[in-house]
Design a protein around this nucleic acid. Structure first.
Length: 519
DNA sequence: AGACAGGGCGCC
DNA sequence: AAAGGGCGCCCTGTCT
């Protein structure tokens, strides 16, 4: 363990200090002063790969990456504090540290004294040393912060030319000024013609008003509502919505902002979702529309290995609950097939609806009755989430498998609707948060394997999205082997010797697009 | 001018 | 096919 305080504000890395500690966080050597943080980290890292302890990866590591310095392991104090304070019921009190989004600068956080950092680390070690699962969670979260910074820095291979071709074929040429692209202008004109009056197709109020003038009372302008209306403007409105979405969210401006040097460089924010899932800041990294994925093109000589965990959350529920029949079902490649056989006369569609309904807290009568059927065959699994739901309804906090706490309820939650919503949230939390932990452990192990493989062609992580990883590699077989091994490792770390399987759908392609998507 | 809420969509 | 959970982002419309 080597502790480094937060660097001074303003990008001034002079005066950086390090001190070596034992596992408990007690110093075992003198504090060393360094002229340059990146140089010091590079030197120490090459000697013995310590676990770096710092205030936050988000505020320190981007600077190191820009200096060409990478580390294997860290302990992120801010991330740890966020998790432990949520467990203590005092969310949001410790450092809400801003992440470094400005190249070349550290954020404006004040410099922190090394004794303060040491004290915080020692206290966190004391807590973690008593809780093996929490210790594992913190290690995985910390590794995740490194992976997030590295993926944001390296970027996802993305062909700006391919994307420009897509935009031009769908929207027309790039507008010179602020006027809308040709195809959007055309469909807007057609909509106005269909209604016989000018209107702004982006205004819900104007659309509803226009329909009302023709004697059509729509409750909203949602797609499924519009589709019920027999009117020539309906398909035009839906098309306008699609085009506008592409233009405004992933159009030329998005390309200029987020894609440079044929790399899409998003800002990942690990653990930003209460369940522990990652979020992204700007660029919509975790919501890349399917239509854009054919522009994610591997470099020459490289391919992508795209791996996603199929039916992850039901498998997580099986492992958490220990329901013997559900565990047995989760030993199959298709979990829904044995569930259907056991409870739904082989009707797979019904089995799927029932399982998803139990995970999300379905309220519709249809799914409720299927849930009752599911309970007959899988009582332990159903009871597991029902207990989480009832705890939430009582205002209690629930926990993931490794001990992440969900936020406490809002003080004023008492209405029937609030209480039921809280139950659906806590019901889903226990599974979604544990699924996030499993995926994070996969990511951490995969990162470790890829970066330490003596064969330098194993590849690099370029994308992570909840239950999916993408490796950019010259050697897809090796990358795939590392993915499989990482899945085994994560499963064993969390659930030990379980019969639950987590089959990965692996695909080797030169674009991120699903091969079923048309060219 | 800027903040915020609500509607809507698409990603898991 | 959707439903239920979690997000980010865009738009309009309203309020300050």
């Amino acid at each position: 363990m080597v502790v480094v305080p937060h660097p001074a504000a303003g990008g001034d890395t002079r005066g950086a200090s390090t001190v070596e500690t034992d596992d408990a966080g007690a110093p075992v050597a003198q504090v060393r002063r360094h002229r340059d943080l990146a140089v010091a980290v590079a030197e120490i890292e090459s000697a013995h790969h310590p676990r770096w302890v710092w205030t936050s990866t988000a505020s320190v590591y981007p600077h190191l990456l820009r200096a060409g310095v990478r580390v294997q392991r860290c302990h992120d104090l801010a991330t740890t504090a966020t998790i432990t304070s949520m467990r203590a019921g005092t969310p949001g009190l410790p450092s809400d540290e801003p992440v470094d989004e400005r190249p070349g600068l550290f954020d404006a956080a004040p410099a922190v004294d090394i004794d303060t950092v040491l004290a915080q680390f020692a206290e966190q070690r004391r807590v973690l040393s008593e809780d093996r699962r929490l210790d594992l969670l913190i290690a995985a979260e910390s590794a995740g912060t490194l992976a997030a910074a590295e993926m944001g820095f390296d970027g996802l291979p993305f062909s700006a030319d391919a994307h420009r071709r897509l935009l031009e074929s769908v929207l027309g040429p790039r507008p010179a000024g602020y006027e809308p692209p040709r195809r959007i202008a055309e469909v807007t004109a057609e909509i106005c013609a269909a209604f016989g009056r000018p209107l702004n197709p982006a205004s819900h109020a104007e659309i509803l008003d226009a329909f009302r003038r023709e004697g059509i009372d729509a409750t909203s302008t949602r797609k499924h509502v519009l589709k019920e209306i027999d009117h020539p403007a309906v398909p035009l409105l839906l098309r306008h919505r699609d085009l506008s979405k592409l233009y405004s969210t992933n159009g030329w401006h998005w390309l200029d902002t987020w894609v440079h040097g044929n790399r899409f460089r998003p800002v990942y924010v690990p653990g930003a979702v209460v369940s522990g899932r990652w979020a992204s800041r700007g660029g919509g990294a975790l919501q890349i529309p399917k239509s854009l994925r054919s522009s994610v093109i591997a470099d020459p000589g490289h391919t992508f290995v795209v791996a996603d965990a199929g039916q992850l959350e039901p498998r997580i529920l099986a492992a958490m609950s220990g329901d013997r029949r559900m565990v047995a079902a989760a030993g199959a490649d298709d979990l829904y097939a044995p569930v259907a056989a056991a409870a739904f006369n082989g009707d797979r569609a019904k089995a799927k609806v029932a399982v998803l309904g139990v995970l999300y807290g379905a309220t519709s009568g249809d799914a409720r009755s299927l849930l009752t059927v599911l309970r007959n065959s899988f009582p332990v699994a159903v009871d597991f989430v029902e207990r989480a739901a009832r705890a939430g309804e009582r205002g209690e906090v629930v926990y993931s498998w490794l001990g992440r706490a969900c936020p406490p309820p809002e003080p004023g939650f008492h209405s029937h609707g609030d209480v039921r919503a809280r139950g659906r949230f806590t019901r889903n939390f226990v599974v979604q948060a544990t699924a996030a932990e499993w995926a994070l452990c996969v990511l951490a192990e995969l990162r470790r394997r890829l970066t330490t493989d003596p064969d330098r062609t194993a590849g690099e992580l370029v994308f992570f999205q909840h239950d999916e990883v993408v490796v950019h590699t010259r050697n897809p077989d090796l990358a795939a082997a590392h993915i499989e091994a990482s899945v085994q490792s994560a499963t064993r770390l969390l659930f030990g010797d379980t019969a639950v399987r987590f089959p990965m759908k692996l695909a080797v392609r030169d674009t991120y697009a699903d091969e079923t998507d048309g060219e």
